[in-house]
Design a protein around this nucleic acid. Structure first.
Lengths: 227, 227
DNA sequence: TACTAATTGATAGTATTACTTTTATATTTG
DNA sequence: CAAATATAAAAGTAATACTATCAATTAGTA
């Protein structure tokens, strides 16, 4: 489709303080990003190390440190990229919709649905990156350094996304008193339901047939008065 | 009050596989639990080590290993204790309530409100433990070992709590299609709102005046049909 | 009280992690 | 072609997450 080509020329603007050297600026950088996604997905964030990544991409540990200070920053980079990518998808998908209710519905759908194959960014596997976000995103902000890192703007993209969603909620129901809380719950809650579906099926009603998207969409429609 | 004394004699039954030696069985064990709560709260889970804890309690690293295999297991112990404690509080508080809607309302209140001083268990600071749960609980299950550990029953208490809540939701609105998802969202969502309130105030409507409990209670009442 | 068992403490040791530093070798660019 | 820049290789450091050994206490019991 056409959006694919459009997105190929788009670059996701990530806070420059997150990396030492822009990984998009070289072949090695791209391999670091590409393979780190695969490795974190395979072995989990705690087992993943720059040494292992170096071995895998036939490069040296010290070379990777020239792109990212540490693996925490790399995780911030990957998740920022993911939220930026989702933001684009959401903005494009909802752009032409005049009806506020339909617009919000579409946004919720884009933000909570399973990620499908997307070849726009050749070296990034969005499906696996989505899995990383489900399993590891919380670890990027549940730290003692969160306030400092927030001040430095490391979570800008995510915050902007929540705010956009919050605005759409206000547009639908200006009387609803908790638009920001609902917006953050939609994103976080969706990730959580995907996790539960996989590991704690008894704690969710989502399964092969019922998606987290359906649960969240239903929750939103029950919660807001679409007068 | 009377519940305080009742709870003093109650022991929270934690899966024996979580510890090597029951920390409730000795003075050292209790100091490990007591001081680990304070330390994890102060420095965060990643910076916390058994060596540091040993120094603080004037004991040896190797002695701590006789109680817990590693700090991950200690976190599982602390969070299991917390959920077990909350479960008791919820069961007691809702026990006499005949009206299903009121009962659920009370349960949500207990499960999502800020923890207050509780002297029932002398060596455990429930307020700080609640803060640990807000900041670290996700890390206890967002691991590659989650399925194995779940099989071994390490998350039993939390699962039971979600199920109890889910049953109350069914009692209120038997037609609602996502009782388990809603129950898990109440617990997880509440923790998340507390976190946002502290670190990302723009992403929540909760603040000094509006509590996560109010947001969640409102969400539940809008979602369920209390016919 | 005296013996035994269990608990705790002290010390040291290992493998791994998370880096940093230095120096050499490619590769790119002006 | 020279100069700058990027990458690779190797080694080193401090901390972590344990494990093992053995000595010193303490507790339980005959």
């Amino acid at each position: 489709m056409d959006m694919d080509r459009l997105m190929q020329s788009l670059r996701i603007g990530i806070n420059e303080k997150i990396y030492v050297k822009d990984p998009e600026s070289s072949d090695l950088g791209k391999r670091i990003v590409e393979q780190s996604i695969l490795m974190i997905n395979e072995m989990g964030f705690e087992s993943f190390t720059f040494r292992k990544l170096g071995n895998r991409i036939g490069s040296n540990e010290s070379s990777i440190y020239r792109y990212f200070e540490n693996k925490h920053k790399l995780l911030l980079y990957l998740t920022s990229w993911y939220w930026g990518w989702l933001e684009y998808k959401m903005v494009f998908a909802t752009n032409g919709i005049a009806n506020k209710v339909e617009k919000l519905k579409k946004a919720v759908e884009i933000l909570t649905q399973t990620v499908e194959k997307d070849n726009s960014f050749s070296h990034i596997d969005e499906i696996k990156l989505n899995e990383i976000v489900i399993n590891e995103y919380s670890k990027s902000y549940l730290t003692k350094e969160v306030d400092q890192e927030n001040k430095e703007g490391y979570f800008e993209i995510y915050k902007r996304l929540v705010q956009r969603l919050s605005e759409m909620i206000v547009d639908v129901d200006g009387e609803y008193p908790y638009p920001s809380s609902l917006a953050s719950s939609i994103l976080e809650g969706s990730l959580h339901q995907y996790f539960l579906k996989e590991h704690f099926p008894m704690l969710t009603n989502c399964d092969d047939k019922v998606t987290p998207t359906q649960y969240i969409a239903d929750l939103v429609s029950r919660t807001l008065n679409t007068a």
